[in-house]
Every structure is written in C-alpha cells, then in structure tokens.
C-alpha cells in the first residue's frame, strides 16, 4: 500500500497494489445501507421481544413471553372449540340418530377415520378391506352380526373365535368330503348330499347353522344369534386364501385351539377394556370413540 496517493483526484480508497492497481470507491447506495442497518436493528428488537439466543438447552425468553408450546396449545384449543359442539351432540345422541343427521354423520366419519387408522387398520386394512386372516369390514358378511349394537359389542368386548380341530375326530376321507362340499357351496353350488349328511352327522350345524350360513337363529329386527362361525354358503372365505386346501386346513386344525400350532388364529382385542396406566384406570377407547367407530364400520359398505 502506498503512503501517499499517486493518483490525485481519482475516486480511489487509497488502497494501491503493484504501483497501479487500486481500489475505487463505489459504496453501495445509501438506501441499501439504510436497509442493511434496519435489518440489524430488526434482529436486536426481535431478540428482545422473542426467544432468540441459545443458552445451553434454554434460550433467552424475550419480554413478550411467547413460547412455541403456547402457540401449539392455542391451536389445539381452537380445534377443540370447533369440534366441541359436534362432540357434545355425538355424546347425547344414539348411533342411529347420528346416522340420520347428514352433517353430524360427515363429522363423525371424518373423526372416526383417524381412530380407525390408529386402532383398526393394522389388521382390517385402511379401508376395511381386511387382510389374510382378518375379516373384511366393508362387505355385508358379518360373523357376529352387522347392526350397530353388534358392531359396538364387538369393539367393546373383542372377539375370540373357536372351532374344534377335527384331525383326530374325522378321517382324512371325511375331511376331504367336507372340504370339497364347502368349496362347492362357496362357488354357489348346492353341495353334495354326502357333504350335507356329514355336516349334520358331525354336528357342524351346531355352530354353522342349519343352512350353513353361520346363523343359529334370526331374531325380529334383523338381529341374529351366532357364535361367530363362518357363513359357508356365501362367496366369502373367512381364512385366506380360501379353496380346498385352506378349508381342509381349517377343518383339520380348527380355530384358536390350544396346543395345536397349525390352528387358525382369530382374536380381536377388547377395545372397551381397562388398563392401568401410571396407577390410573384407563380404557383403551372411550365410549365416545367406540360410538364413532361403530358408525364408521357400519357405514363402510355392509352395515345392517
């Protein structure tokens, strides 16, 4: 850098290298500098008002007292205020009344969709389409009845199917006859007389019903009495993949039979049950949630 400026009158900063390379003074516009200093001022003011500077795990609080969690809670309160009136009406109304009210039904379905996703979809699929071993909820084939009361009962108490393992009771030939007969029925056929004879002789009808539709008795009002045995005459298989091998397997090893590793599993947990969480009795799902879910399942496409 030169001691004196050898380029008098030139608009340079006095920084000169190699005799003739010098830095010219071209300052940014004044309005730009005003903006620059204003931005810095903004940060200072902001950091006084709001939490800004980290101190270990904490931060300077800011004199406005604003926190993220408060903002979050305010948001939650807003949502709760919006939901409140709907939730109150759901509480005081029966499931049938809710279904009859289009606006409230729409809210209920939207709300229950979340619950269904959290508690039901792992087994029954996101749209109630079922999974291998887990029943389809969108059809009209109900093991335990498809009206609102029965659906509610199922959610509250859970279900556990039972079918004897027939590997030691029936001969292989008998199992073969029954499995073929079940396949015929499933495909819409009449079923062989030999199959029907065996079905009755071995008391399968005690659970699967006289007409093999899984119903023991029809009550007035569309209610049914059943033990959860599958309907054998519709086109729907209780256990995937269905067909001869699958049916023979179910007959041979039964459902939920202790001590038989090959047995079919068919257990639904009780969502009305109580669990102790930190010394407080907590139900898995509240009555309100169960009511919403029953409506949701009922409206999936096959509710009775």
């Amino acid at each position: 850098m030169a001691e004196h400026n050898p380029f008098p009158g030139e608009n340079n900063t006095g920084h000169i290298w190699d005799d003739n390379i010098r830095e010219l003074a071209n300052p940014p516009p004044r309005w730009w500098m005003i903006g620059f200093w204003a931005s810095i001022l903004f940060v200072v003011v902001y950091s006084i008002l709001y939490p800004t500077w980290p101190i270990g795990q904490q931060a300077t609080p800011g004199i406005m007292g604003w926190t993220q969690i408060q903002e979050y809670e305010r948001g939650l309160a807003q949502v709760a205020a919006k939901r409140g009136p709907f939730e109150e009406r759901i509480q005081t109304m029966t499931a049938q009344e809710i279904i009859a009210d289009p606006g409230l039904l729409q809210y209920t379905l939207a709300s229950a969709k979340v619950l269904f996703g959290d508690y039901c979809s792992a087994c029954h699929g996101s749209g109630g389409q079922g999974n291998p071993g887990y029943p389809v909820l969108a059809d009209d084939d109900w093991l335990y009845g498809g009206n609102l009361a029965k659906i509610t009962e199922t959610i509250v108490n859970g279900r556990k199917g039972a079918m004897t393992a027939h590997k030691d009771i029936l001969t292989d030939a008998e199992i073969d006859t029954l499995a073929r007969w079940v396949v015929e029925l499933n495909e819409g056929g009449e079923g062989s007389p030999a199959g029907w004879d065996l079905y009755r002789a071995k008391a399968c009808n005690a659970c699967h019903g006289e007409t093999a539709n899984g119903v023991l008795a029809e009550l007035p009002g569309g209610d049914i009495v059943s033990v959860g045995a599958a309907n054998l005459i519709d086109g729907i298989w209780r256990f995937e993949p269905g067909g001869y091998e699958s049916a023979a397997h179910t007959i041979r090893y039964g459902v939920n039979q202790p001590g038989i590793p090959e047995t079919r599993d068919a257990v639904m947990p009780a969502f009305g049950s109580v669990a102790r969480v930190e010394d407080v009795d907590v139900r898995k799902l509240s009555d309100q949630d169960i009511k919403k879910l029953a409506i949701y399942v009922h409206q999936l496409g096959g509710g009775r």
């Binding site: 699929g125 084939d141 519709d234 496409g301 096959g302």
Partner: peptide, 14 residues
C-alpha cells in the same frame, strides 16, 4: 381405493 371392490354375501360386487 382400499378396497377397490367388495364381494358381498350374495355374490354381487360392490
């Protein structure tokens, strides 16, 4: 989309 269709007990598709 889930399910794309449902088989009903009378054999029809919904």
């Amino acid at each position: 989309r889930a399910p794309l269709f449902v088989r009903l007990s009378d054999g029809s598709i919904q």
